[in-house]
């Protein structure tokens, strides 16, 4: 009893102090003039440049949405944030959303987020090796050590897919989990034979003399929807008009980004520390405004093949 009282007291006093410091969330509220405040969980990477541009262009205020971007260090923090209502919308890679929804998390994609350029030699994600590596094609990756940023996710399933398409046996690849910034160093030291990189690390690595073997995104599908914006089913059910407004503004932002690559490169300065020389040369992804359902189905099938999911995700429930 006393013990319980003590911990309850300790916790609630902390909670009270926190509440006094203004801890209560202000997301999801609507002001008198009909503007809705929304919080969006994003990762500070190239993929989300359109949302920064769209805010600057006023696409969100036109739709009466006041956006606050909250940067998380990884997608893993964003999905729970959206489910708990901390964020009203979030950005995540498509495979993570498929995994989450096959586990029964009530997520709803609202629009596309980022997709492959469709050009296998010039995509924003690819597998690279040292310049003098014997690995020449995707098939040669079989039996090698390949670094990826997350095991059992979009990068392993798509690398497996391109290796298989090229006639290699992907089950012989041993994957090593490393953060993107560490992969080029691991390739240089010989800790791994190859690594899957995305921009800006891809341009930095090839600039340092590494060679691109294959793009696992364009190699899987020319329109591969790598990431999407999503919300919780709960929020979507209660606020259909906000979801529509957000989707409209987001689609305008992505169209604008596709049409103004120079502005995309410039806006990177505002939320990343990418070297100016790399900013000019890195490969920008495509930002389609519709989700390619067939390609999402393909990602789901790949995830199932690799045993990431045992239950087929409900695409009708997940996709917009």
């Amino acid at each position: 009893m006393h013990r319980r009282t003590f911990s309850v007291l300790a916790l609630s006093s902390v909670a009270a102090l926190l509440a006094a410091c203004g801890a209560s969330g202000d997301g999801g509220t609507t002001t008198a003039d009909g503007t809705t405040n929304v919080k969006i969980g994003v990762i500070p990477i190239v993929d989300v440049a359109p949302i920064y541009l769209g805010i600057k262009q006023g696409f969100f205020t036109q739709e009466k949405i006041n956006v606050t971007l909250e940067t998380a260090q990884g997608g893993a923090a964003i999905v729970p944030g959206v489910v708990s209502g901390q964020y009203q919308f979030g950005f995540s890679n498509t495979t993570s959303l498929l995994l989450a929804s096959s586990q029964g998390l009530p997520l709803k994609a609202v629009t596309s987020g980022v997709a492959s350029t469709g050009d296998p030699s010039k995509d924003f994600g690819a597998v690279v090796v040292k310049a003098d590596s014997p690995i020449k094609t995707a098939k040669d990756l079989a039996g090698k050590r390949v670094a990826v940023n997350t095991l059992k996710n979009v990068n392993t399933t798509t690398v497996n897919n391109v290796v298989k398409k090229d006639g290699g046996d992907p089950s012989t690849i041993s994957y090593v989990e490393l953060p993107f910034p560490d992969i080029a160093a691991a390739i240089a030291k010989g800790d791994v034979d190859a690594g899957q990189l995305v921009e800006p690390f891809l341009t930095i690595a090839t600039g340092q003399g590494n060679r691109q073997v294959v793009s696992n995104y364009a190699g899987t599908s020319p329109t591969l929807p790598v990431g999407m914006y999503f919300t919780s089913k709960n929020y979507a059910g209660q606020n259909p008009q906000v979801v529509t407004a957000f989707t409209t503004a987001m689609n305008k932002s992505m169209e604008y980004a596709n049409a103004h690559p120079d502005e995309v490169r410039a806006v990177l300065n505002e939320y990343t520390k990418i070297d100016p020389a790399v900013q000019k040369t890195l490969v920008l992804p495509k930002w389609p405004t519709t989700v390619d359902r067939a390609a999402v189905q393909q990602l789901a099938d790949l995830a199932e093949q690799d045993g990431l999911i045992t239950k087929k995700p409900d695409l009708d429930g997940l996709l917009p």
Binding site: I43, P44, I45, T71, Q73, P179, F180, P181, P200, F201, I204, Y271, T272, K273, I274, D275, V278
Partner: peptide, 11 residues
Amino acid sequence: RSIGVAQSSGA
């Protein structure tokens, strides 16, 4: 967070 952003920008 600035360290994290610098890191994920390859800086």
